[in-house]
């Protein structure tokens, strides 16, 4: 179920809304920040805490692409595959990432270090191709700088 800190944080988020249920997405993200993803117990915990049916909450969770309902690695890589990055050959970037990490998009490396995900436009089209690792944006990617960047994430 939910930890006390999670509950406290969810309560703080819920204070912004006139209706408790509105904090659903905040709550899912709060849980995810602490656990990496949103397991079924957390769906049960949040739904009880926000007094909404689990089905409805999971319907919400499964709508959004940044709520992970499956375990992810320690670091999540979002490689932009939208149009401006595509024009700057992001498909090659993704292939290269896939090669380096030894996983297809959507998968997690065997050592649990990285999960590789394609992403919609990250809003940094002037510095394409780009990717995000966890909360960091990495821009102007070419073949050379990738390895160095990855090294920074244990």
């Amino acid at each position: 179920m939910l930890s006390d800190e999670e509950k406290e944080e969810i309560n703080a988020a819920a204070a912004a809304y006139p209706v408790r249920q509105a904090a659903a997405i905040d709550a899912l993200r709060i849980v995810q920040r602490r656990r990496g993803w949103v397991p079924d117990e957390a769906i049960a915990g949040v739904s009880e805490f926000l007094k909404m049916p689990a089905a409805e909450l999971d319907g919400v969770a499964s709508f959004y692409n940044l709520i992970f309902r499956r375990p992810v690695g320690r670091h999540v890589i979002l490689v932009c595959d939208s149009v401006s990055c595509w024009l700057m050959k992001s498909d090659r970037l993704l292939e290269r990432m896939s090669g380096i990490l030894g996983v297809e998009t959507g998968q997690t490396t065997a050592d649990g270090r990285f999960t590789l995900l394609p992403s919609v436009c990250l809003g940094a089209c002037d510095r394409a191709p780009v990717m995000m690792i966890d909360e960091d944006l990495h821009t102007d990617l070419d073949g050379e700088n990738i390895d160095k960047i990855l090294e920074r994430y244990e």
Binding site: P53, A54, A55, D58, S62, F63
Partner: peptide
């Protein structure tokens, strides 16, 4: 009813 919902998109 609370236990039937739409999932994904």
């Amino acid at each position: 009813g609370g236990d039937l919902a739409a999932f994904s998109l």
